[in-house]
């Protein structure tokens, strides 16, 4: 399984804080995005923000290939401090 987490505007627009997806070999972040977009318009809207992507707490690109058990997060540019 893959865990997907969303934060800030991406969480609100996708209406998802955390969810699980089935893992398959050579699954990329782009595959995750395609799978989520097929689940509803809210995901298409969320990804239209071009969110940053983290895998296991490291910033990655959508070409990143996942492993079983990975945690993927989508969030907007940061605004702390």
């Amino acid at each position: 399984m893959i865990t997907v987490k969303c934060f800030a505007q991406v969480r609100e627009i996708s209406q998802t804080e955390e969810m699980s997806l089935s893992f398959h070999q050579n699954m990329s972040i782009a595959d995750v995005q395609r799978q989520l977009c097929a689940q509803g318009e809210q995901w298409q809207k969320a990804f239209s923000l071009s969110p940053l992507i983290a895998c296991n707490h490291i910033i990655v690109s959508e070409n990143h290939v996942l492993n079983e058990g990975d945690e993927v997060a989508f969030f907007p540019p940061v605004t702390g401090g």
């Binding site: 934060f7 800030a8 505007q9 983290a54 969030f75 940061v78 605004t79 702390g80 401090g81």
Partner: peptide
């Protein structure tokens, strides 16, 4: 920190709020 650390600020105005 303001560029890299995952933190997101939301400002509150009465009943509404804005990222």
């Amino acid at each position: 920190l303001k560029q890299d650390v995952p933190l997101w600020k939301k400002e509150h105005y009465g009943e509404s709020s804005v990222w």
